[in-house]
Amino acid sequence: MAPGETCWTVIEAAADGDPGARSAFARAYLEVVRVVLSRRWARSPLRDAVEDGVQEVFADCFKAQGPLSGLDREHPSGFRGFLFGVTRIVALRFEEGLQRDRRRQEMVGSAEPSTEDDDLARSFDREWARALVRQAAHRHQDASVDERAWQRCELLRLRFSEGVPVREIATRWAADPAFLHHELARARTEFRQHLLAEIAFHRPQATPGEVERECRELLELL
């Protein structure tokens, strides 16, 4: 991440057509949109249109004179609010299209898509939280330039993702369990710093206290 770079600089560069920024945008956020739309439309005829929906969100985000142009970047909901807004508009647009199509074709018997905004907001917030911690993990891995730092990342993965006890990891790696406990604590601190950095990346105007508070809320969502 370049110094001074925020989610807004990335999305503005993407809107200007920068392929690297578009790629970074797609990597970070499209999975959130894809999962949210997949869940929302899982039992509706729109389940086959998820990729279309993802694509529409992508296109709407960068549209000239689109939502980005009139956006208040200092709004408390930040970039999350922007992406949620675009996703919601696209979802509703598709659902309206389906309803109209159905009225025209008099289709019956298919399950309705979930149209509760609260559902969409909850689902979006959860996926957003997941995306941010994943991005933090990427940051952590990218920052691990030496072998020992990389081992700390692997230690986190084995311990918390695969649930392997520290004692067993120590046996596998032929290492001292006490040393691994020490490394694990250090790795947790590192990960925490990367997660805070990721949140600040999305809320460039926020104070450190606000970032801490958002971090706590994000953990609750997972």
Binding site: R130, V133, R134, A136, A137, H138, H140, Q141, S144, W150, C153, E154, L156, R157, F160, S161, R188, F191, R192, L195, R216, L218, L219, E220, L222
Partner: peptide, 23 residues
């Protein structure tokens, strides 16, 4: 409780991050 939340977050982070260097 906060530590449990952190553990869960780390699990989600590295579980969903896909394979990485050294794997």
């Amino acid at each position: 409780d906060p530590e449990r939340l952190w553990d869960r977050a780390i699990g989600a982070a590295f579980g969903g991050a896909g394979p990485g260097r050294g794997q």
